[in-house]
Design a protein around this nucleic acid. Structure first.
Lengths: 176, 176
DNA sequence: TTCATATGAATGAATG
DNA sequence: CATTCATTCATATGAA
């Protein structure tokens, strides 16, 4: 991924491959000042969870007063903050299980409680491999519904007729 | 920690698989190998943005050589890559409307654009306008919304003096 | 130094 | 295609 952007650090191959490209370079990531964090937190506590692009811009502009900041920082901040609050809450709710005997949704959390942990996992799709020849003329009916993960890796089915031995990198795009 | 409850695979180690075939990785979500990513990126850079079902199939088949992959992974990859490139351009372009910071203290802003592992392969044409003319050409469709380039002329004009006093806290949220 | 935690960043997967 | 969620990766920081 050539996400050449400020604050990008090599992501591929954690180790291995001896010298990674820019290990030396200081890939600094945004380091919010306390003022910035405070404002962001205030906004969050005020109810703002997912600022629109427009809001992000405004916030970023305002916060740039306190120090270097980019829009994406604001974006990520809210993403992370929301996600982590949720995950924290989830962990807590799990902690006080048993208290609720009812199987109805938890009564505690007022809202935005996502029950990611499904009590019963229904087996719906029998399809194990989407080789479906869905015909998407042009509507956007194309959707991949695969509720199962981890199908034994044995299901590979390297398409027939392809006796490729590591296709030449230069010719990779030719098969289209 | 996380007291394994989600029944999700606890990835043992973080490795981007320098070789081929995602050895030993537990399941969960698709974890593209570097080769897979490279091919996908090449395709993307070649102009492919929204591969047809047929193309997805082909690509998936080819990439399966490098490791486990499903059609939907390819589908999502292109969806995400395209969306994020756009989103990134949007977010980033906004924030570089550099507030006039004559900023003498530090000659910072190292502008750390690092083309990590790419030797000198492509220059990556920074497409600022639709040049594509492929099958699935995707011009930059103006959306119903007004240009998100509403530059917020009121910016802030960081009163560059030296030490700026913080704006009243009670007014912070007013700009939204 | 090593380990644990907080958090910025990234991205796969969905959904509308 | 835009948005959002969930999970993971990476790094900075502080405790042991």
């Amino acid at each position: 991924m050539d996400e050449g952007m400020s604050g990008f650090c090599i992501k591929a191959s954690s180790f291995r491959d001896g010298g990674n490209g820019n290990s030396g370079t200081k890939c600094g990531r945004w380091n919010p000042t306390t003022e910035q964090v405070k404002v962001l937190t205030d906004l969050f506590r005020s109810g703002l969870r997912t600022p629109s692009t427009d809001q992000i811009q405004k916030i970023s502009s305002q916060l740039s007063f306190y120090g270097k900041i980019e829009s994406k920082n604001v974006f990520y901040w809210f993403q992370n903050h929301k996600a982590r609050e949720r995950q924290k809450r989830r962990k807590v709710s799990i902690d006080d299980k048993d208290i609720i005997r009812r199987d109805l949704e938890n009564i505690s959390s007022p809202k935005q409680i996502n029950q990611v942990s499904e009590p019963a996992r229904v087996i719906e799709t029998l399809q194990l491999f989407p080789i479906n020849s869905f015909n998407e003329s042009e509507g956007e009916k194309l959707r991949f519904h695969a509720n199962e993960y981890c199908k034994e890796a044995s299901a590979f089915t390297c398409t027939v007729g392809t006796e490729m031995d590591l296709p030449p990198l230069d010719l990779r795009l030719s098969f289209l």
